[in-house]
Amino acid sequence: MLLAVDVGNTNVVFALIEAGTIRTRWRIATDVRRTADEYAVWLLQLMAIEEVERSAIATMIVSSVVPRARHNLEVLAQKYFGLNPLHAGEGAAAWDFPIHVDEPRTLGADRAVNALAAHAGFDGDLIVVDFGTATTFDVISGDGAYQGGIIAPGINLSLDALVNNTAKLPRIAIDHPRTTSVTGRNTEDQMQIGVFWGYVAMMEGLIARLKAEIGRPCRVIATGGLALLFQRHTRIFDAVDADLTLKGLAILAARAESLNEEKFRA
């Protein structure tokens, strides 16, 4: 069984993947001070609830955009599972597709993993939109090469900036506005309209520009927590896959295992 770990700026997702199928997933807030022992207490209890023995974990793979979280996850793997974890983009789990950016090593592991999974799951040119702490737009050509993309502030960051830098605006939930009008009659409705429809307009505008620049038919794949919310109110997404990153990690881990088997036979 594979233990896949996706470390984002806001949350860390742990998932158990068996024969390519995601069995379960758990989420914990990202905290670089969290020790391997703290991870273990939390994770092993959840595994016990699922009736999964720690000995069932044969491989652990980590994708991280938080370098300071790496050490404690490595200690977790070694101390509690007897494993040396794979790291997405390194060693046997290195990328095997071209990355056409000025500094390929600066590309976030999550974005590269998404590109890998999207190309494996969908044909042709693709735009992958990932709703995380930041919202990213990544362009993948039909041959699987990463062509570049866009980084925009995540909608939660935008709302936090608005609320934290004004004296009287309240904190609101991110949701579709209650009114069908875009002329709000109270402060909360005006904020909801501005945040929600403003974000939809930003996404639609950027995707239209990307498609015009690509100049060929392409599909738009969305992932991340808010993808389903926005999918109900815009037609820009051709598909939504909330597990795109985890699927990419499963592909990388399987490829690394295959490479190790080939080396052993050699």
Rank of each mutant, 00 (worst) to 15 (best):
N72S: 15
V139C: 09
A48K: 14
Q190T: 15
D189K: 05
L116Y: 10
Q147V: 03
V129R: 13
D130A: 15
V65G: 05
E51C: 00
A145I: 08
G148M: 09
T223K: 00
R111N: 12
T180L: 14
Q231F: 02
F237A: 02
G224H: 02
F81C: 03
A88K: 10
P67Y: 03
R23C: 11
S141T: 13
R219V: 06
G225K: 03
K211S: 01
L162E: 01
M191E: 05
A120K: 13
A40I: 03
D6E: 13
Y80C: 05
L159P: 09
F196D: 04
D102K: 11
G91M: 02
V12R: 11
D96N: 13
Q78C: 10
N156E: 15
M203F: 01
L83C: 05
V5L: 13
A15T: 10
Y39L: 09
D138V: 10
A29Q: 14
N186L: 00
A40C: 07
I49D: 13
L116R: 15
D125C: 10
L43E: 05
V7E: 00
G89M: 03
A115G: 14
V65P: 06
E51Q: 14
A93N: 10
L210Y: 00
I172W: 03
H176P: 01
L2E: 11
R33Q: 15
I174F: 04
L244C: 03
I57E: 09
S181M: 07
P177F: 01
S64K: 01
T245H: 01
T30R: 11
K79A: 11
V182G: 04
I61C: 07
N114M: 13
G121E: 14
S63M: 02
D37E: 15
Y80V: 04
W42G: 07
A254S: 08
A173F: 02
R23S: 14
T245S: 08
Y199V: 08
T30H: 08
Y39P: 00
R105K: 12
I61W: 01
S258I: 03
F196A: 06
A19C: 12
L206G: 00
N260P: 06
R68E: 15
